[in-house]
Nucleic acid binder design. Structure first.
Length: 911
RNA sequence: GCUGAGGUUGCCGAGCCAGGUUAAAGGCGACAGACUCAAGAUCUGUUUCCGAAGGGAUCCGCCGGUUCGAAUCCGGCCCUCAGCACCA
């Protein structure tokens, strides 16, 4: 069905406000949420899936008689929107290109520059895309209650966030401490993924090095390593002869480090002071002492040392580092490598082996060296055993030794140094390093009482798929401190330290509760002159009596809000994707556990799978990120919804691809044409097939309900869509009267299909002369109580036909007459005796039948009492099917090949 | 290496949690037939092997176990994928 029809129904739904539920104590409520979208761009196929599935669930629950609330808001906190508007202001080409592309979807060519101009202000980006997303979501037919929407940047909401943080603080869950962050020295600011050049495609993470201090006669020298366990194999140190080196003061000690690393060290450790340049002659070829062993080693020059990485000093372990081994060869120094790591059974890679195998000649073969290094480190880390002669660590695995040696070194001869996982610069071109904040705010998720309470929440929740429950328990155990505030970004100020802005995931943990009372909160905030006092929020959210008195008007609003929260809250189901498990969903659960009473805790989480497009991961650069707007226009939103629901299980990956889409489209088209061509036949006389169709339909319907209740949306729609379509084919093949068959089920079919293809169903519903919306219909389940005999009768006929086919195939007979012999009365009785009483009761003249009965018992059934009539009623059909005559009789004749048993007539093919 | 998911008939993919009704849904592909001047679309049938009577044999990564009975439960092994970790 075309976009005009979809639009027509979207407008009607909206103007009649059928998805804006009111409190109704008579009805059971159902609150379903999906994390709010971040409004810095338009959404694509991948984003739409979870929202679509949630909408299918919401619409389904409505049919089943629940009072359903499906609300939505917008996330605008954090740095990305800010970073993008900064980039647009700076004239960043990539950002302009990307936003031009977004805008092209919605605006005329001529308007684009106007909007790009507007987007220099971050709030305009947020505003613009929130509006677009609402339109996109409406265009997909989502039954969202937009009247309750709000954004994370709205002042009244920020009061709620402050309330949350004051509480967490009072509960002792907020702490301050040291924390490493990515930082730009030039900009004197923290940088996020969006500020880094290629930060989205090539992530930069923070690595923890051990900076080891080697004592010399006049001063020490410090070399940073990720592999502290190798200190037993050190033969020398390296510095880069082309670079400058400085002395720094570190807690009274004088240490050598590269000039370009000094600033970084200071950012990480305020105790460090720069003492200025040091002559390299005082370092090169001098000896320094290795900690723990005390061994004295010389410093050699080598060009491979990067002054920006670590401290610009490298300790050399030629026994276990390809770089060091090759570098020593390079400068012609003959030092015997020290081996300190072995492998079980002596098998495993060695530096020498790799150098030979990859024919590495000199340091200029840097790619090969990197490759060899990766192989060696991997193998040593996973299977290496320490074997350094006689230290305390000998015999430990490399992994174990690394932790232990690091700990020992940190006591007095090392400190932690953080480094970026790759060289990175900001989009503005300044270097990105790691700085350590001394006063970072954290939420402390390690507190035992909170963990315990959170486990209790999880234990009582629904998880779909259920193994995520165990996963969530593990995550809760594993969570420690989580930084909860930033120095920049859009968001709420930390109420007890206004220099900080609450971090964007932390400000969005308990917001679903605000959907229950957003309109009242906004109004109270306005009436009280931009204020939302503590005791009011306390009262609304937790029911604690008000401490202060307010005007009647305000008190009324407060009461409404509290009543609404009491009715609606407790999110019944939150749907999202699995990457949210370790962050958002865990915080969501733990913050609810910390702040709210049991009744308001989350009740369920359904994890939906990711979406790929044409077999590939969706990314803007691949061009397979089709926007939701284009989906609705090019494919129709019902087709998108149907495809998302049916082409893959809720929890597994969905591939959006043309080949599969056209298959689903075909089915969809045949559904529409079947329903459209339906005309009430006026008669209701049913034959075997029609009766079978109706019972089968309701069997599918109860299967559908069972599956929808356990969030198996795909399975549910396979039952009520694909299988019903197949049944229709069967009725047609059997020459049944389709209109008579459909008449009995078509109303319910439209109703049950409406959650996935609501526009189509509304339109068909109306064309059939119904009033009102199919979306607000109620489906009354018939349960499993239906008489199944039409199914048995149809199975009997089907089995009869397939037996005829099989005999014909096995014998090669193409019959001119088929003789069907149905069990006569006395055989029926004998069979009944054999099945219910046992062989001893069989009358003597039938005892010869017992062996045959035993042989065929799995096909014998007493379900059908009037086989003769049944077979007669299908005589014409069978004759037509095999183009021959059918003779039906009912007799016992010992000379015949087979005995006619109930449920298994004997069949004779005559040439 | 850790954690999780998974290995099903040509392919994709159900079933497995609650063992028998499972030669194992559905789709795709292939083959045959109907329709058509033809192609496409659509419909019908077949698609592990054997069978001149509706039957039989073998089968769900590998090995073993529990059971009257296992694709389904238990133990071990092999392999694949994802996330994490690791990579001066």
């Amino acid at each position: 069905m075309g976009p005009e029809i979809e639009k027509k129904w979207q407008e009607r739904w909206e103007s009649e406000r059928i998805f804006e539920p009111a409190i109704n104590p008579e009805m059971e409520k159902f609150l379903i949420t999906v994390p709010w979208p971040y409004s810095n761009g338009s959404l694509h196929v991948g984003h739409g899936r979870t929202y679509s599935l949630a909408d299918v669930v919401a619409r389904y629950r409505r049919l089943m008689g629940y009072n359903v609330l499906f609300p939505m808001g917008f996330h605008q906190s954090g740095t990305p929107i800010l970073a993008y508007s900064e980039r647009l202001r700076r004239g960043d080409r990539e950002a302009i290109r990307q936003y031009t592309e977004y805008l092209k979807e919605y605006e005329n060519e001529g308007e684009i520059n106007h909007y790009l101009d507007q987007f220099r202000e971050p709030e305009n980006i947020a505003q613009y895309f929130s509006d677009r997303i609402i339109k996109d979501f409406r265009g997909l037919g989502y039954s969202i209650d937009w009247s309750r929407r709000f954004t994370s940047a709205e002042p009244f909401y920020q009061e709620v966030v402050k309330w949350q943080f004051r509480h967490l603080h009072d509960l002792g869950l907020i702490k301050q401490g040291r924390y490493p962050i990515l930082y730009s020295i030039e900009d004197q600011n923290a940088v996020g993924e969006d500020d880094i050049k290629d930060g989205d495609t090539d992530k930069v993470s923070i690595e923890e090095f051990t900076a080891v201090i080697f004592q010399g006669p006049d001063f020490g020298i410090v070399a940073a390593s990720l592999r502290p366990e190798t200190i037993f194999g050190i033969t020398n140190l390296w510095i880069n002869p082309e670079e400058e080196y400085h002395l720094v003061d570190y807690m009274g000690e004088r240490l050598v480090t590269s000039a370009s690393s000094v600033q970084k060290l200071i950012l990480q450790n305020p105790d460090i002071k720069d003492l200025g340049n040091v002559d390299k002659d005082r370092i090169l070829y001098h000896e320094f002492a290795v900690p723990i062993t005390g061994k004295k080693v010389p410093v050699f020059p080598s060009g491979f040392v990067d002054p920006d990485n670590g401290t610009g000093v490298v300790y050399s372990v030629p026994g276990h580092s390809v770089w060091d081994y090759v570098a020593l060869k390079d400068i012609g120094v003959n030092i015997e490598p020290v081996k300190i790591i072995t492998f079980p059974e002596g098998k495993g890679l060695t530096v020498e082996g790799l150098v030979n195998e990859k024919s590495i000649g000199s340091l200029s073969d840097s790619d090969k060296i990197r490759e060899a290094t990766a192989m060696l480190y991997r193998e040593e880390f996973y299977s290496g055993i320490m074997d350094d002669g006689n230290s305390d660590f000998s015999g430990m695995s490399v992994q174990e030794a690394r932790e232990n040696i690091k700990k020992r070194l940190l006591d007095d001869s090392a400190f932690i140094l953080y480094e970026t996982s790759r060289k990175a610069e900001t989009r503005g071109g300044s270097r990105v390093v790691v700085a350590v904040l001394q006063d970072q705010w954290f939420i402390d998720y390690s507190v035992p009482w909170l963990k315990e309470k959170s486990h209790a929440v999880v234990e009582n929740m629904l998880f779909e798929p259920s193994h995520y429950r165990e996963g969530m328990h593990d995550i809760i155990d594993w969570l420690r401190e989580r930084p909860c505030a930033r120095r920049r970004g859009i968001g709420t100020k930390l109420p007890f330290d206004e220099r900080w802005t609450i971090e964007s995931l932390s400000d969005s943990t308990i917001y679903p509760i605000v959907y229950t009372c957003a309109t009242q909160l906004r109004e109270i905030y306005a009436k009280l002159g931009s204020n939302l006092p503590e005791d009011i929020l306390e009262h609304i959210f937790t029911g604690v009596p008000l401490k202060n008195s307010y005007s009647n008007e305000v008190t009324d609003l407060v009461n409404q809000a509290r009543t609404s929260r009491e009715y609606w809250y407790g999110v019944d189901v939150r749907m999202t994707t699995s990457p949210h498990m370790t962050n958002h969903l865990a915080f969501y659960i733990m913050n609810h556990a910390a702040l709210f009473r049991e009744k308001d805790w989350p009740k369920g989480i359904v994890i939906s799978g990711l979406v790929i497009s044409e077999g590939a991961k969706i990314s803007k650069s691949k061009g397979n990120a089709i926007s939701l707007l284009r989906i609705a226009n090019n494919y129709s939103s019902d087709l998108y919804r149907l495809f998302s629901s049916i082409n893959s299980e809720t929890t597994s990956v969905l591939d959006w691809n043309e080949a599969d889409i056209s298959l689903v489209r075909k089915k969809y088209d045949s559904f529409v044409s079947i329903v459209e061509s339906f005309k009430d036949p006026g008669v209701t006389d049913m034959g075997n097939v029609e009766r079978w169709f109706v019972v089968s339909f309701y069997n599918h319907a109860s299967e559908y309900i069972k599956k929808m209740n356990s969030y198996d949306i795909r399975g549910a729609y396979i039952s009520i869509f694909y299988e019903v379509l197949n049944d229709i084919k069967h009725v047609e093949a059997r020459g049944g009267n389709m209109m008579v068959a459909l008449r009995a089920v078509i109303r319910d079919w439209l109703v049950l299909m409406s959650p996935v293809i609501p526009h189509t169903c509304e339109e068909l519903w109306e064309r059939m002369g119904n009033h009102g919306f199919v979306s607000t219909e109620r489906y009354i389940s018939l349960g499993d109580g239906m008489d199944q005999s039409p199914i048995h009768r149809e199975n009997y006929i089907e089995k009869l036909i397939s037996d005829i086919r099989e005999i014909s195939r096995a014998t090669g007979i193409n019959p001119s007459v088929i003789r069907i012999n149905v069990a006569p009365e006395d055989i029926f009785e004998t069979a009944s005796l054999l099945m219910n009483e046992g062989p001893s009761k069989v009358p003597d003249h039938h005892r010869y039948l017992i062996p045959d009965f035993m042989k065929n018992r799995k096909n014998i059934s007493l379900e059908i009492k009037d086989e003769m009539n049944l077979v007669r009623s299908e005589k014409d059909y069978i004759e037509k099917l095999f183009s021959c005559n059918v003779e039906i009789l009912s007799e016992v004749n010992r000379s015949r090949r087979a005995v006619p048993w109930p449920g298994r007539p004997s069949i004779e093919l005559i040439r």
